[in-house]
């Protein structure tokens, strides 16, 4: 899988690159408008991460160009701009998702995975991890073909954990992912503990491996036992 990161802050681009590398995602970076245009013209990507404020141009122009050239890349806007108008304009110009800075890398990763799943969707849209299968559309989870009864939050949490396999996830990253729009207001992230506990219990009771590990002082990690 190959993605393009259009971002003028090199260090942010580098962090994304490093984080995604271990998940088998190959990242290319473009730190300005012109470079981004050249790269889009010459290559095809699975996904493009787009910062709107570039030193030599407007991120929206890149969206227009992709549209004009009938390119099918999924685009996630990553921007410090946070207002409804910018968001709507981005979606109107063909962006698939919008993430406001600052964000958690884990959040960006699962959003991108979801986007790519939607783009590559051929009849079924599912996430499989060993004996666990999550059907995205029907929102069903099975362990060794036995259906599991999960709440919406637990399902969301499961996808977040699997998507960030082998990554240490901070409590705040999980809490912010689970609370969506409300995330900016929460000052207490302890509520995720109950969700983790319940999910863990339901999975192990259904005979799945115990993949959720607690990382001391930090948060949790989804880890393959082997």
């Amino acid at each position: 899988m190959k993605i393009l990161i259009i971002e003028d802050e090199r260090e942010i681009a580098q962090s994304i690159k490093d984080y995604f590398k271990t998940n088998g995602i190959q990242c290319e970076t473009a730190e300005n408008y012109n470079l981004a245009r050249t790269k889009i013209d010459s290559y095809d990507y699975d996904c493009i991460l787009l910062d709107l404020m570039l030193p030599d141009g407007d991120g929206f122009d890149i969206l227009k160009e992709l549209k004009a050239k009938n390119k099918t890349e999924g685009v996630i806007i990553i921007s410090a701009k946070e207002n409804l108008e910018t968001r709507l304009e981005g979606f109107n110009l063909g962006a698939d998702d919008y993430l406001t800075k600052p964000f958690h890398l884990a959040e960006l990763l699962v959003r991108m995975q979801a986007l790519i799943r939607r783009k590559n969707f051929k009849g079924s849209n599912s996430v499989v991890f060993n004996e666990i299968t999550v059907e995205i559309f029907s929102k069903t989870v099975t362990v060794n073909d036995i259906k599991l009864d999960l709440t919406k939050k637990e399902l969301d949490l499961l996808l977040f954990l699997i998507g960030n396999e082998n990554k240490v996830l901070s409590k705040s990253a999980i809490a912010e992912h689970l609370s969506g729009d409300m995330a900016d207001m929460l000052d207490n992230h302890d509520f995720i503990y109950a969700h983790i506990k319940n999910l863990k219990k339901k999975l192990t009771q259904a005979g799945s491996g115990d993949y959720i590990k607690t990382v001391y002082g930090l948060g949790y990690k989804w880890e393959n036992e082997q």
Binding site: E9, E11, I12, S15, I16, D18, Y19, T22, A80, T100, K101, P102, F103, H104, L105, A106, K167, V168, S170, A173, V215, Y216, G217, L218, G219
Partner: peptide, 26 residues
Amino acid sequence: QTPLALFQTKIDTLQQLDLTREQSAL
């Protein structure tokens, strides 16, 4: 927001390293 984003992504990267308990807590 930009420095905050830098701060956040670097912490996200930092916590992936092999940390001692003390470092993890920090």
